[in-house]
Computed example of a mutant assay.
Amino acid sequence: MLKRKYGNRHDWQRITKRRYAQSFLDAESFKGYITLIDMVKVREPLWITYENRELCLVDDGYMWLQQFPFGKNHMVTTTFDWEGNIVQWYIDICHEYGTDKGIPTIDDLFLDIVALPTGEVYLLDEDELEEALATNVINQEIYDLAWAEAERLLKEIKEGIFELFDIADLHKKMLEPTLESSV
């Protein structure tokens, strides 16, 4: 079964106090949902290492902007530190997105892409996609869709034409005034 991820990350216990906002946009530059999670207080920071680079992805005052582009097989999470600097872009390859009680969701297809502001790009979790195919969690058609989407996105990132990176800060600024406290 595919893992479902929610735009509000309501199930993530690491965040003890948060504010949340979401909106649906229908503009020429972007059509789909955008969400913003303000991590007011967290139990403990989350650090991750890519090769020899250690990055903090979750801490008090960090924000995650998520972009759910309509009709696409990916969702982008932009991590902002407490000063508003972009730490990373994390792209979930997904089967499709929808909503559950008004909250945008994705069905995760295991493959992920991480892009750093320094230009480094990482493809993650290929082994998880292979295992999902081998254990019949997904079929060959879904497997091929995941790889095709990942390869297309990697090409766009390399060529500098992946537009969601360019509008992440704008989307964050649009949602910040509407942040509301939530559990």
Results as ranks from 00 to 15, higher is better:
C94A: 15
D107W: 15
I91W: 01
T99L: 13
D108I: 05
E83K: 09
G71E: 07
F70L: 13
F80P: 06
V87Y: 13
I86P: 12
F80L: 11
W64A: 11
E83G: 08
G102T: 13
D100C: 03
L109F: 15
I103S: 07
F70T: 03
D107F: 13
T78P: 08
Q88M: 14
F70W: 10
K101I: 12
I103F: 03
F68R: 06
T78S: 12
Y90Q: 12
Q66R: 06
N73I: 04
T105R: 02
L109G: 14
P69W: 03
K72C: 11
C94F: 02
E83I: 02
F68V: 01
I91D: 00
D81M: 03
T78C: 06
P104L: 10
H74W: 05
K101D: 10
T99Y: 13
I86S: 10
H74R: 04
I103W: 00
P69S: 07
T105H: 03
Q66L: 13
W64T: 11
D100G: 05
V76Q: 10
I86Q: 15
T79M: 13
G98D: 15
G102H: 13
G71W: 06
C94D: 10
F68H: 07
N73E: 03
K72I: 00
P104W: 08
V87M: 12
Q66T: 15
T99Q: 07
I106D: 00
D81P: 03
I93S: 01
Q67R: 04
